[in-house]
Amino acid sequence: MGKSQRDKGQRREREFAKLIGGHRVPLSGAQEGYTNDVIGMGLAWEVKARKSGFKTIYDWIMDEREKPDALALKADNKPWLVVMTLDRFKELVGDGRNN
């Protein structure tokens, strides 16, 4: 991974940590013993950022006709995943600032 990709990842981790009132895990992924990217709202988070790698997921969750609260995703032989906007997540569990 190049410096620009690493810097982008760290920017997104800091941004997400701020949004949920959490904190970025220093050295996450770079040194043994430092796992996950962000801790907040009582959860350990991995933060992924792609220029357009999640386009289909965004298309599904932002569908103006369907207006889903969340997506349920499943690949063969893998566990179910639930995807929702951060705003909807915070509505359901609170803003996390007290955790």
Rank of each mutant, 00 (worst) to 15 (best):
K3Q: 09
K3H: 07
S4Q: 07
Q5I: 09
Q5E: 14
R6K: 13
K8M: 07
Q10L: 10
R11T: 13
R11A: 12
R12G: 12
R12Y: 08
E13G: 12
E13I: 01
R14N: 14
R14G: 12
F16H: 02
F16I: 00
K18C: 09
K18W: 09
L19C: 04
L19Y: 05
I20T: 04
I20G: 03
G21R: 09
G22T: 02
R24K: 08
V25E: 04
V25K: 04
P26S: 05
A30F: 12
A30V: 11
Q31N: 13
G33H: 07
G33L: 05
G33T: 02
Y34A: 10
Y34P: 02
N36R: 14
N36T: 09
N36Q: 12
D37L: 00
V38K: 03
V38F: 01
M41F: 06
L43P: 11
L43R: 08
L43A: 11
A44E: 14
V47M: 01
V47S: 06
A49C: 06
K51E: 15
K51G: 13
S52G: 11
G53N: 05
F54L: 01
K55H: 11
T56D: 15
Y58V: 00
D59K: 02
W60T: 03
D63N: 05
E64F: 03
E64T: 00
E64C: 01
E64G: 03
R65K: 13
R65F: 05
R65S: 11
P68K: 11
P68T: 07
D69W: 08
D69G: 12
A70I: 04
L71H: 05
L71N: 03
A72M: 14
A72C: 11
A72D: 09
L73K: 09
K74V: 08
K74Q: 15
A75N: 15
A75F: 11
D76W: 07
N77E: 10
N77I: 04
K78H: 14
K78A: 15
P79E: 15
P79N: 15
P79C: 09
W80L: 03
L81N: 08
V82W: 13
M84R: 10
L86R: 04
D87L: 07
D87Y: 06
D87V: 03
F89H: 11
F89E: 07
L92T: 07
